[in-house]
Design a protein around this nucleic acid. Structure first.
Ligand SMILES: [Mn+2]
Ligand SMILES: [Mn+2]
Ligand SMILES: [Mn+2]
Ligand SMILES: [Mn+2]
Lengths: 217, 217
DNA sequence: GTAAAAATTTAGACTGGTCTAAAAAATAAT
DNA sequence: ATTATTTTTTAGACCAGTCTAAATTTTTAC
């Protein structure tokens, strides 16, 4: 079994690799883990020794089948707990990520199965992210950041990035939540801000915000 | 904030001290923590430096007001999570202790308040143990192990010790659960087994079992 | 009251995870 | 092609928590 810390590394590597396809570099891991490259190299060796990743010196790491499976189980737990916190305990969607970071490491296969059942086998978490099933199968939806699309685009908000509480509070305030239709009216060249229409309301959002809104392709 | 490990030590010391009244010896702690006396001495120094306990060399430790408060919060979380697992996730009462040992260390005051509310502010856990309130106030009930009482005793089962899953399965099978009336018919001198009547049924229980059943005084 | 036994503490070492500073390899610039 | 820069790895250290073995203190036995 991977340790608490190893689970966090595997999750980060999985996400950085685009669900396991590309190789991930040491510095990329260091950045998202808020740690130093030297620490990452140490951990990489441990994960490699346990066959969770394959490692070629100076050329980054690739997650293995086994590592991917572990990562997906942690992601499943994280998203189920977030759903529980919002649906059952009535948390706001901006308050749950940090708590789920802890809950995702509780070890008990039965627990997570019963939790899944209790929640009615949800398919997405409060931020629109898909929840892997008990076999680690996950629906990989086609979607892209709103920033980068051309003016005239119309689509549906599929998910939003969940790690910044202030962003989520803001998105909730302007009604930019998963399921809503969003139109891209125009782009401002100077600061790359976007003129959009969400839920019938016209407003301007910054580049940073637009990068965190994921819409249908 | 105390660490994961420090919380487990504080909880053990609190229980061993009889809710904080008596001093606790190094070897007692080592035994319940499944560790060695040398490790306990090391930890004692850390807990003492943080003012969770007061420590006199060679004469054991006493838990402080602050240490007691921390211990009670961990106990509160443990018992609320056990209640959640049984009441909401439909676990059997013998399956929840180990999982609650992990869940009790999740850090979030809001979480535990919302959980308490979700459960309808329960006052006892699935094994009959009282749940401290958010201020750490706990009802200290008068009760004693069934073993040691005199033949002829009649009373109510208040609680049972919860750390052994096989014991709990057995108690459930014979109907010796909190709330039930229990009569002590007689004692066998040889092995200190007891002849009892639980829920109208006559049966013999061993000394070990009787030590784990807590009844009204 | 001294000796033996038991309990406790110290000394030194190990693992997991982290860090800084220095060395080595890879990439970019000229 | 050599130099300069960036990335990555290694070397050595630290902290939390644990261990074994040895030293110290307390308690028990006679
Ligand atoms: Mn999250
Ligand atoms: Mn985490
Ligand atoms: Mn318990
Ligand atoms: Mn615990």
């Amino acid at each position: 079994m991977p340790s608490f810390t190893e689970e966090n590394y595997l999750k980060a590597i999985y996400h950085l690799s685009g669900s396991g396809s590309q190789a991930v570099l040491t510095n990329e891991i260091a950045e998202v883990m808020h740690t130093k490259a030297a620490s990452v190299t140490d951990m990489i060796k441990k994960l490699s020794a346990k066959n969770f990743i394959s490692y070629e010196k100076y050329y980054g790491v690739k997650i293995t089948k086994q590592g991917k499976s572990e990562a997906l189980m942690v992601i499943r737990k994280h998203r189920l707990w977030e759903t529980f916190l919002v649906e059952k305990l009535r948390f706001n969607w901006d308050e749950v990520h940090e708590i789920a970071e802890q809950l995702e490491h509780i070890q008990s296969a039965v627990l997570i199965q019963k939790l899944d059942e209790f929640l009615g086998f949800p398919t997405t978490d409060p931020h629109g992210e898909p929840i892997p099933d008990k076999h680690g199968k996950i629906a990989v939806p086609l979607r892209q950041p709103l920033h980068g699309l051309a003016a005239g685009y119309t689509g549906t908000i599929e998910a939003v990035h969940d790690s910044d509480s202030n962003l989520l509070k803001y998105l909730n305030r302007i009604g930019a939540v998963p399921g809503k239709t969003i139109k891209l009216i125009g782009k401002e060249e100077y600061d790359e801000s976007l003129e959009v229409e969400v839920d019938g309301k016209r407003l301007t959002i910054s580049k940073t915000v637009a990068e965190n809104i994921l819409v249908t392709a």
